[in-house]
Amino acid sequence: MEKETAQKYHRESDTMEDEVVIHIKGLKKSFGNKEVLKNINLDVKKGENVVVLGRSGQGKSVTIQCIVGLLKPDEGELTVFGEDVTEMSDDELKQLRIKIGFLFQSGALYDSMTVRENLEFPLTRVLKMKDQAEIDQRIEEVLEGVGLLDAMDKMPSDLSGGMRKRIGLARTIIVKPEIILYDEPTTGLDPITSREISELILTLQKKYKTTSIIITHDLECAKITADRIVVMNEGEYIAEGTLEEMLQSDNELVKSFLRDIS
């Protein structure tokens, strides 16, 4: 019921704009002799939640690492907000990254810092905020948003897997990015926590009006968060559409994939 409400809220309140914020065409990436991305084409519109489904090792994470400039593609077009990521200088890339949030699979919390210091880090180093009262207010706001206000002074090692993801999410949204890239946000979590994280992603997306690409192989997460689903297999997108369209697809690979993960 909760899931249905979230989905309904998601669809009804969504007023997607036509502006394409991420444009990928003919993207290729190899590691040694292994061709990981063969021909990726994807346009993501402003305010859209695109879920990329696929088995492990198909190049899903490589795609979003290319978007954020962590990896350089071998060939193809890749623009974010109309600017070519592949041609950017370090400074331009740094400016772009301020507008893009990235949630790592593990949360990637800085383990020598408390939760508060983890959240302070992007504010003081990236946004160069100096006013401590304003910093504290932002930290409290995002921690309240992810329901972990009481974890402020804990170390990452004291947190459970689900809590780490929530804090990772809080650290991602604290700089108010326009795009958020989620790398398997529910992997390694129990079904209840997975659903909570998926619903949290949706709630935060509505609150901060972000555009998202969610890499996952969790169909439940896709059901809750997706406006559009892209299915990836062996370095290529083999199908694209809403979840309903995917479930009715004639493509054997899509059918087999959705059957396997549902």
């Binding site: 954020v68 400039g69 962590l70 740094k94 400016q95 990254r97 301020i98 893009i100 990235f102 790592f104 990637a108 800085y110 880090f121 992007p122 180093r125 990236v126 650290r171 700089v175």
Partner: peptide
């Protein structure tokens, strides 16, 4: 990587 993609140095 998290530091790098956040725009920190």
């Amino acid at each position: 990587d998290a530091m790098e993609v956040s725009g920190a140095n």
